[in-house]
Design a protein around this nucleic acid. Sequence first.
DNA 1: AGACTGAATGCTTTGTTGATTATTTACAAA
DNA 2: TTTGTAAATAATCAACAAAGCATTCAGTCT
Lengths: 211, 211
Amino acid sequence: MTKDTVRDKIVEAAKKRFSHFGYGKTTMAEIATDCGMSPGNLYRFFPGKLDIAEAIASEDYETHLAQARKIALAPGRSARERLRDLLFVELRRTYHKLEKDPRVLEMATQIGHERPQYVNWMLANERKILVELMEEAEKRGEMMPPGDKEEIAEMIQSATMKFRYPQLWSKLSLAKLERELDGVLNLMFQGLCPCSEAEREKERKAAHAAA
Amino acid sequence: MTKDTVRDKIVEAAKKRFSHFGYGKTTMAEIATDCGMSPGNLYRFFPGKLDIAEAIASEDYETHLAQARKIALAPGRSARERLRDLLFVELRRTYHKLEKDPRVLEMATQIGHERPQYVNWMLANERKILVELMEEAEKRGEMMPPGDKEEIAEMIQSATMKFRYPQLWSKLSLAKLERELDGVLNLMFQGLCPCSEAEREKERKAAHAAA
DNA sequence: AGACTGAATGCTTTGTTGATTATTTACAAA
DNA sequence: TTTGTAAATAATCAACAAAGCATTCAGTCT
């Protein structure tokens, strides 16, 4: 039996236990027994319990990323339509996932708390997709904002972070969240008080001086 | 001795204790003794301990609101400059306040956790100021985005919530936070991919259909 | 050697007890 | 009636013991 097969077996067993009893309530000993091995042996395949959870999360995340990339590059939709689609799909997906079962939320908070680096890695991946979206738009000759695309992606994430893991930040209903996301997108798309670039530049200087 | 005088005395005593020992570590009995009365009597002036904290917070908040309103209506600055000033001042103010002393943070989290209504009330107040800012801009003939001002204010808050109580949501440094706020504001001001209103309308219909 | 075990370790969680403390209430003074 | 007290209650907290568990490792088997 190859090493990867065993790894998969462990992940499968853990997935069953975690989704049934929750992360906190399943022990390494139980996972080991389910795989017909001793607890100690698990550590030859994973550094620790949380890493098994990460492996499970990553599986899910891979398919999510693929889906997101497809939306970001969907033909026949404008850049802004694609961005809107992307954020709405993410909002609904995570909302429902966290809503339907508290076990997932438990694992999410656990990982988010003890592995901030992992969260950063996810954000970076999604930023890469946003950049691809913008590059694609530029290639198609759509109007694009000036400036570094990676930075713009960061700001989009910053302005929409509330909608990324909705249940962690607020207790708003999905309907309310969707309305707010729509509003924030409109704000970003149309811009407050649209006017000339020159005027904007002057303004930023004034802001800098005041600070 | 009038009722309000006693109330003030209680608030003063509590303020001293809270800022010195923290909310959790001061007892109602101590506050009462400081005021030369029995613990039970405090309840003739406040429904509970947390309400005393609220009273203290509100005192501070009033001066904050006044300052914010002044910034929002400052002469000689454009609407966007004023909005930028407002958000930056708020960011720095709360960041430093929470940074400098954990006692304030303790009270803030306590109130935020057990009195979500109070937080809503604060947000509503600040929204009112944003609306005033926009109305003032309109009066001065500055270019304004179309739509309900109250709603726009809500969306601005939504997009900038990360900067309102920075320490509660992330562990970013003030410098990083300022850069992000700057970026988000630019995003809102210039708008992603500026283009015609008609095109935007078409887009929203498409988004609706897709949902 | 390489794969694996299961007992040992030390950390975290849980349960329990006793004290503190917010809040209520029955009563007293003015 | 208003203003207050202080004892009673009930909820929470702190301290500490007991379990339980993730993780490690000395050692077995192949």
